[in-house]
Design a protein around this nucleic acid. Structure first.
Length: 610
DNA sequence: ATAGGGTTAG
């Protein structure tokens, strides 16, 4: 009997699952009784072959055998059930274990945590404590994972104390998991403390910090962590690279992003699907749509995220036909469009004002793909209708939304009202926004702009007053560019730059040149109660123009210029930059709060619809 | 005699 068992075990251990199963059935045919070790080995082979049915029949054998459910066999069974997604089956096996030890408890907690059943994982831990079983580092690592995904700080603190009491903080898995809890709860200070005090650090330790900062929107800190990690000679893995690229994307930092891309090529991590997806996203968000597409084309193993990222990237750049071509191609591939795919597709239509197409995709999404529209889909449709001036239809759509409209929906409607000067509806939209987010300064500013456009200066003053009462200020218009690794930031009428005299000279020259090409200042965009020549002067102080002038001085001729700004680009700057792109023969990319504009040869990729 | 469990990402 021992030799039969030894054979089954040997096969199972060495990845010969098929032979293990054959050996097991032969053993039974010749009438030998399997023991615990035989069961463990053959169950392992079943999991390896995904032979769930076989596994369950062996479970039957185990129950019939004279052995009481052994802890080793029970773990093998738990593994079998959870591996085929039958966590309830596993729970039943677990309940029948006569003497549950720390390993069986920890196993169940781990599997609940991994299958997104955080509450169940925590429930198991409570039962475990009632059963007076002492948890170990494995238990805590899993428990903390659930705690992190729930973002439950009070529980995290309790577990932290417990960990300290048991002296388990020195375990790198436990301290990593605890750091993650604090970062998911938004308390990076605590994560930093743990990070600094950690006895042992591995690449996961660093990744947890990089990801933590990234998810809290602190791209700079995330990138700094990444650079420190390189300095400390800790080897990055695919998680590191994808997260660092994500930070670059959030900062629209093309240079660091490109450098990290080279690092991934050197280390071969560029072949990783998730890193590839992060590269598409990074290039897209940094304004380099051609490289985004290049990465997409070179990818060996795309997943749905790759397709979605490419569609969204094109959409962000106003290249609706490219976005829709990728969507078409996706449908011909093995991947099925999901919710996020349609967010990309609809926003592509939205960015180009393709009303019929947008409506058709919206209908098809529900009818052909069975996807229930979510808030993002409705936001696209409201903006699509509203932007085209169909404000009543947009309003009707909002009324038809089966759930409570989010602040994004009202913001979209408000934006459309501003463009079409619908003061009354705009006021309603602004009120809704401010009900939900009383500190939304953009809503106040848009409302005030609308009143100003209608020359209702009394209302303007009123809005300004209520802002002042709350101690809120208008978000200043900012533009920035990256030149040789340095970021240069400009505000409206900025005179603080050391090279301001050169910049002003360049602006003067540009003004003369584009006036000769037919530029006429559009003073309507200056919403102040002042004279036209003063308005004209103010237009030339807009931050994007100052940034552009600086870029023309400080970047090599012929290279593309990338400008980032925090607000929507104004109509006059748009007109001016179009002509400038022709005069200076440069490609000028401007990313405003919503999207990218590619100016070249006197035209913009947005076809003047934005 | 011998066999079992864990963290990070789009």
């Amino acid at each position: 009997m021992v030799s039969w068992t030894g054979m089954v075990a040997c096969y199972a251990e060495n990845d010969h699952s098929k032979e293990a199963l054959e050996c097991f059935s032969e053993m039974r045919n010749v009438g030998f009784m399997p023991n615990n070790y035989t069961f463990v080995s053959v169950l392992k082979a079943c999991v390896g072959l995904q032979e769930i049915g076989m596994g369950k029949s062996i479970h039957g054998c185990v129950l019939k055998s004279s052995y009481e459910l052994d802890n080793y066999v029970s773990i093998a069974l738990l593994n079998l059930y959870t591996d085929c997604g039958d966590i309830r089956g596993a729970q039943c096996v677990f309940e029948d274990i006569p003497r549950k030890d720390v390993i069986s408890w920890s196993f169940m907690i781990a599997r609940y945590a991994q299958s997104d059943q955080s509450e169940a994982a925590i429930g198991m831990f409570c039962q475990m404590r009632k059963a007076l079983v002492v948890p170990n580092q494995f238990t805590f690592a899993s428990l903390l994972q659930s705690c992190a995904s729930l973002g439950c700080l009070s529980l995290g603190n309790q577990i932290h104390c417990f960990v300290l009491k048991l002296g388990l903080l020195s375990d790198v898995f436990v301290s990593n998991a605890l750091m993650d809890v604090y970062s998911k709860c938004g308390i990076m200070e605590n994560s930093v403390t743990l990070f600094v005090d950690a006895e042992t650090k591995n690449e996961v330790t660093w990744n947890t910090m990089i990801v933590g900062y990234g998810q809290l929107g602190n791209g700079e800190a995330s990138l700094t962590m990444f650079m420190n990690m390189l300095e400390q000679k800790v080897l990055p893995n695919e998680v590191t690279y994808s997260s660092a690229l994500h930070a670059c994307a959030s900062l629209a930092a093309l240079d660091p992003g490109t450098q990290i891309h080279s690092l991934t090529i050197k280390t071969k991590f560029d072949k990783d699907t998730i890193v590839g997806n992060a590269l598409i996203d990074m290039y897209g968000k940094c304004g380099d749509i051609r490289h985004a597409r290049l990465v997409f084309d070179m990818m060996r193993n795309r997943d749905e995220v790759s397709w979605n990222s490419m569609i969204s990237a094109y959409s962000m750049h106003g290249l609706a036909s490219e976005a829709l071509r990728i969507f078409q191609w996706m449908q011909e591939s093995e991947f099925k469009p999901n919710k996020l795919t349609f967010v990309g597709v609809l926003s592509a239509c939205c960015n180009m004002g393709l009303l019929d197409e947008g409506q058709a995709y919206f209908t098809s999404m529900v009818r052909d793909y069975g996807i229930e529209p979510c808030m993002e889909h409705y936001t696209c449709m409201v903006w699509l209708l509203g932007r085209l001036g169909k404000l009543d239809k947009a309003m009707k759509l909002i009324a038809d939304i089966p759930f409570h409209p989010s602040v994004m929906i009202w913001r979209a409607l408000l934006g459309a009202c501003v463009i079409h000067n619908d003061v009354e509806l705009g006021r309603v939209a602004a009120e809704r926004v401010l009900e939900m987010e009383p500190w939304d300064e953009a809503a106040y500013v848009l409302l005030s702009n609308m009143y100003a456009a209608a020359k209702r200066w009394g209302n303007v003053a009123c809005v300004r007053k209520s802002m002042k009462k709350k101690g809120m200020k208008k978000e200043p218009g900012l533009s920035w560019i990256e030149v040789q690794g340095n970021t240069h930031l400009f505000t409206v009428g900025d005179t603080s730059h050391p090279e301001i005299r050169l910049i002003n000279g360049m602006l003067q020259w540009l003004k003369v040149r584009i006036t000769r090409e037919g530029y006429v200042p559009n003073c309507c965009v200056v919403l102040l109660d002042i004279e036209d020549d003063e308005k004209e002067r103010l237009l030339w102080l807009h931050s994007e123009r100052v940034a552009l002038a600086f870029a023309l001085i400080r970047t090599p001729s012929g290279s593309p210029i990338r400008i980032l700004k925090n607000l929507r680009i104004c109509a006059d700057c748009h007109a001016a930059i179009k002509i400038i792109s022709k005069v200076v023969e440069r490609e000028i990319v401007v990313r405003d709060i919503n999207r990218f504009h590619h100016f070249q040869d006197g035209v913009c990729s947005c076809s003047d619809y934005w």
